[in-house]
Design a protein around this nucleic acid. Structure first.
Lengths: 107, 107
DNA sequence: ATTTATCATCGTAATATTGCAATATTACGA
DNA sequence: TCGTAATATTGCAATATTACGATGATAAAT
């Protein structure tokens, strides 16, 4: 009880859900938006910008990163995050094709 | 602690997150897919089809419904769910424009 | 070497979500 | 009206997520 039964769904369904999960928290949406607006390095500007603790931002960043959406680079002690555009576009395409496939029939 | 601090984000960010949340569970993705594949009435076909309890399916349906994605109709004692295509397309558009806006700059 | 800044991780508390059994509710047909 | 099928709601246990303080690791600056 309690845990999502991922094993009962096929791979493409789980894939859509997993992608959506990344965007299902406003902090992560805000982080992605902010990253896209910056040129070059962003560090924990995000902490000031968004208003969550450094630990929480870092946690959200790792969710985004685990999904493959970040390219990170250290420049001295500052971490420079930027969007992995290829992966991001892959997500866009996958979600979009889910939408297209789904909206065919109606009663 | 513990609860998402929605109030610190602007409306458009929360909107994206709320939309994504609907698709962030495989059961809901599977339900939407199944509904789109059926002509006319679906009842608790979903229970057999997906393999969750009736209570759980009903719960997920109400999340989908609260998001405005269902048109329900009673035909006798059976509820005929179908996709609210207009709303679904609205979701598609909103997500897509988030993707487009976001993938502009990169380091 | 010591301090300072940046970021990750750990531990933990608060809250949310998922899933189900049990129990309503609703609508039909006998 | 009674029984029954379909669906919704309630209550609860299990699990996941969110958030943060504390701690640790690393690298620059002093």
């Amino acid at each position: 009880m309690g845990a999502t039964k991922r094993f009962i769904y096929n791979q493409s369904i789980n894939e859509v859900a997993n992608i959506a999960k990344v965007f299902a928290h406003p902090a992560r949406v805000a982080i992605l938006k902010y990253i896209s607006e910056q040129e070059g390095c962003i560090n924990n500007d995000l902490v000031d910008e968004i208003g969550l603790s450094q630990a929480t931002i870092s946690q959200h960043l790792s969710v985004i990163g685990d999904a493959g959406l970040l390219k990170g680079r250290f420049e001295g002690k500052k971490k420079c995050y930027c969007l992995n555009v290829e992966r991001f576009e892959e997500f866009q395409t996958l979600l979009n094709s889910f939408f297209i496939k789904t909206k065919t029939n109606c009663c």
